[in-house]
Design a protein around this nucleic acid. Structure first.
Lengths: 140, 140
DNA sequence: GCATAAATGCAACAGTATTGCATTTATGAA
DNA sequence: TTCATAAATGCAATACTGTTGCATTTATGC
């Protein structure tokens, strides 16, 4: 797995402690993280506003994509594909577990093609599934 | 179109002024409404908390379904099919216009069938599209 | 090492949503 | 129609989510 430090370089982001720590969190977790999740871990070291702004920068540069989670809060996850500051290519679906509350990218499940009624111009598609995740099902 | 009064009866909801007025709003608008939209119209007549609780009741009884809009706020729309308090059947997609900010149910566009990796149990699917709506495209 | 632009911390604030409790109201039965 | 009761409402307080402005600190390239 890529190191946080080189990733920041590749994406044209300054290597600050805060950014390294936040990126490390994403690299060491498979699930999507909300601002609150990050604040819980790093909140004593960095200001909440800094965390918001870091997430925003990461998204702008194509390092993270955001997910409108069923929890209501926005979550973020690492982009798998070659996203840049110009365009995101996150055409996979997201799964939210109603039991553990975690959200995952199902990178192997692509969003199916859609035909909308005439008159609509589509710029983005969001597809999410809700249910019980692998880990919770296995735990039964 | 059905009247608000009889709809409340059918869904086992008490016929209060607040509920009638809120339901009338939904019956007279095609787009999904957020709490803020309703408060703007009825906020001087009813408390914001009452509006929240009314929306929650309507959803519980299967009269409305909620949409996690791109605006961040939750929006609500009338259920077309025979939803009940036990199960929602809103398997259509939602369209959010980035220009006018409105969200619509595309009842005629059904969510395509999906196969998820083994281990996941799916209870609900959410599919939304983002772009320019019919009306905004026509206005150009 | 130094100048500079970027990032951070802090304070204040706005919007969204929830909870508890007292009061009012819709409803069905007498 | 009256009445008892459970449900709905209003109000106050609070929590959560997210944003903005500005002064200070820091990473970066020269």
């Amino acid at each position: 797995m890529k190191q946080a430090k080189e990733l920041l370089g590749e994406y044209g982001l300054r290597k600050t402690k805060c950014r390294l720590d936040i990126l490390d969190l994403f690299l060491s977790h498979q699930q999507a993280l909300a601002h609150a999740d990050i604040e819980q871990v790093l909140g004593d070291r960095y200001d909440r506003v800094t965390i918001y702004r870091t997430l925003y920068s990461f998204k702008e540069q194509g390092l993270l994509h955001s997910i409108n989670d069923i929890s209501g809060a926005v979550k973020f996850a690492l982009c798998q594909e070659a996203c840049s500051q110009h365009q995101h290519y996150d055409n996979h679906i997201h799964f939210s577990c109603t039991q553990c509350g975690q959200t995952f990218c199902l990178n192997e499940v692509h969003i199916p093609a859609m035909t909308l009624p005439a008159g609509y111009s589509v710029h983005n598609l969001h597809f999410s599934a809700e249910g019980i995740c692998k880990a919770c099902n296995a735990r039964e």
